[in-house]
Design a protein around this nucleic acid. Structure first.
Lengths: 126, 126
DNA sequence: CTTGACCTTGTCACCGGCGTCAACGTTTAA
DNA sequence: TTAAACGTTGACGCCGGTGACAAGGTCAAG
């Protein structure tokens, strides 16, 4: 199928598909006219990418998942490289959550100090 | 004082000081030679900006704090506009923390599904 | 007079994942 | 035959806070 159809079916823009190709994630054969010719099997790859991006992963993160699917696996995370990404991401998230939580406490303390009447911190209250 | 001294005393780069001026946060008088001439009173303003940036606020967020200090207040958050920024930021942080926490749960679940032996989720354990 | 340490403005680069044009070739239906 | 609807590559813009460099002006010390 051509890029337009693939885009429609995957729910992405053609721009995105070209970008993924440029990043070496999704490759399409070329017709005699230079048009990209996508395989049916590429659809789940694109879907996997979108799903990961929506979950906060980067395109680089998605690479092992796509490779894993292309190797014939039923699921993109059936490979150790993908699992490693999960773990790295988990650690990243924990770190970020920790940072933001500490920051939240700081801001709340500042707010309490600056505006004593502003006891709007809903935490610990019912 | 000139920009170099101000930068040194505030612990920022001259580039940053020029950028703050460009954004309308810190204004300096100009000498006959065109050199910026900072006032002693500008030092705490710069310090306030750095402190806020370090806490995850943007330069835009810092604006009311700086204005507040320039109006003669002892503290940058002694003005309602600054307090409003605190509150907005607090809400932002809560939202971000919520998003990341949900995402973390997703990733942990995926990890658990992809790698049953990988029960490394340290939460809930001692 | 010259060197070197300061100052000035202006501009590109970064990071990520595209959106959005431009300028052009191809296919397809009327 | 022609116009619409597709396809191609290439390049700029965005967002924020600088870093780094260019090409120049200024000023104090030796």
């Amino acid at each position: 199928m051509r890029i337009g159809e693939m885009a429609k079916r995957a729910g992405v823009s053609t721009r995105a598909l070209r970008y993924y190709e440029q990043q070496g994630l999704i490759d399409a054969r070329r017709g005699a006219n230079g048009y990209r010719d996508y395989d049916e099997a590429d659809l789940p790859l694109v879907t996997e990418i979108r799903s990961l991006l929506a979950s906060g992963f980067t395109l680089e993160d998605a690479r092992p998942f796509v490779d894993c699917l292309r190797m014939g696996n039923h699921s993109g995370d059936a490979c150790p490289e993908s699992v490693a990404v999960y773990r790295r991401k988990l650690a990243e998230l924990d770190k970020q959550i920790g940072t933001l939580t500490a920051r939240r406490a700081d801001v709340a303390a500042q707010l309490a100090g600056a505006c004593p009447n502003c006891v709007l911190d809903r935490r610990g209250l019912t």
